[in-house]
Nucleic acid binder design. Structure first.
Lengths: 270, 270
DNA sequence: CAGTGGTCTAGACCACGTC
DNA sequence: ACGTGGTCTAGACCACTGC
């Protein structure tokens, strides 16, 4: 009576599906996973087009505790497949239209991904009494800064030209480092206790002017990505970087869509 | 005795920290949240530099059940702050180096984001007996295809030129649609039951050739993003698109890093 | 072997939305 | 008032890692 009706006349017994003994850690077909798969199946086959069964319904239908049914739904929500509204219910969420994101990795890692050799050359490393206005604006700071210009090469060929400004008061020691050996990110995070907690960036496609093209050894008008990036430590801007990346350098990705938001990061309180 | 020692001599009472009654949904300082914040605080202040307290230790220290302590750690792991290894323990995870991702939205949404008007013009819409070899390869199909060429404009100015190929056997009805009124994505997902489950894409920066530059009303050599994208429905390629996007059209983003992987999408079994 | 994380249970109380 | 999701408890068994 007070007990919610089953979704199916006959209970679903997840244990009957254990095809392989598999011996792996959870039965490889854990109850929670099984429920998730059933829900996904149901959404594919249009069995569920809008609203999904509630936690209690699922628990009854699959013969599990509410916490387990709940976990399945919570995970589906985290995966962007479903939307849960307190007091109302759980609803299928249409995957987001074909957006794509194009990931800009640190040079060294990018080289590893592509399976090519990586070298870098420091073109300039010095302090500036006052940063250029644009830099000052992005750093919210106009005291002494450090300017580092580097050229990153894949298989000896220049692919990325980096013009980096660091706050002098926070990063002075960078002036005395061998930037061809150590990554700036490691310096900041491990040695200077400046964890990266936030990134702002701006990307366009451009053609290289005379000076910049020369750096790459290409004629004027060569295509490139142009990136500005500010990185923050706890909401304090620490570095401002300008990148030019060869346009031919393809960024390739494959992924399943489903979320509007960027990946959960250093989320404080969701 | 058998009981794990407390981390602190005195128990932590989360309730004492309730600064604002706040009246919001969960006490705004739920036990789980409080534990997470303490862990984050501990990692920032170098109290935890490698290993974190175990579930049982946390439960005892905060006077909560193991499930609650566990949940805190699980969420921290999902946020990329922590790594959990079965049988060993929970360890702090260094946020990933400054990678960034640059999100390519559907034109209409992109216009909304920028707060400009959006219009589109269909330049060509017809069927092809056989697709060009490159298209056939990406679609894994060389039967009849539909070719749609469109120009997307922001405030009347052409910003994105789209050359799209659709599998004729799956999307024939697209030929008879008003593509200036309906989004192709909606057609596929809602009318043709072809949900988007996977995307592959490839991006470079280029300079426009004579023909393409003319489409934008720009001189040859104008910079642009050049994107190829294949979209899948359940691992079957459905459309192959080529985009040219004005290089001046900036893509801007701000986000907190922490993960290596793209956002969780239609993940089947994690 | 003891300790870790992974899964699950059968309850409980609360806040919220709908009727 | 009722059903929903959100939080939490105090147990339980398992699989894995370390010594």
């Amino acid at each position: 009576m007070g007990r919610p009706r089953n979704l199916n006349p006959e209970r679903v017994h997840y244990t009957t599906l254990t095809s392989k003994p598999s011996s792996s850690c959870p039965p490889a077909t854990s109850k929670c996973l099984f429920i998730k798969q059933q829900m996904i199946q149901g959404m594919r086959t249009k069995r569920f087009t809008d609203r999904l069964p509630s936690e209690n319904q699922l628990a009854a239908a699959f013969g599990v505790s509410r916490m387990t049914a709940r976990r399945a739904l919570v995970e589906l929500e985290a995966e962007g497949l479903v939307e849960r509204i307190r007091g109302k219910g759980t609803y299928v969420k249409k995957p987001d239209p074909a957006m794509g994101y194009f990931i800009v990795q640190p040079s060294r890692r990018h080289a590893e991904t592509l399976g090519v050799s990586y070298t870098s050359r420091v073109i300039e490393l010095r302090s500036l009494e006052k940063p250029p206005p644009m830099v000052a604006e992005h750093l919210g700071y106009d005291g002494m800064t450090i300017l580092a210009r580097r050229l990153h090469c894949f298989d000896g060929k220049p692919v990325r030209y980096e013009i980096r400004h660091l706050r002098g008061d926070l990063c002075a020691s960078v002036l005395f480092e061998d930037l061809e050996a150590v990554s700036i990110h490691e310096l900041l995070v491990d040695r200077l206790d400046l964890p990266l907690t936030r990134v702002w960036q701006h990307i366009t496609a451009v053609t290289l002017d005379t000076a910049t093209a020369a750096v790459f050894g290409e004629p004027v008008g060569h295509p490139a990505f142009h990136i500005f990036r500010t990185t923050f430590t706890h909401e304090t801007p620490v570095t401002f970087v300008e990148y030019f990346i060869r346009g031919e350098l393809a960024f390739e990705d494959t992924f399943a869509p489903g979320r509007t938001e960027p990946p959960p990061g250093l989320g404080f309180g969701h």
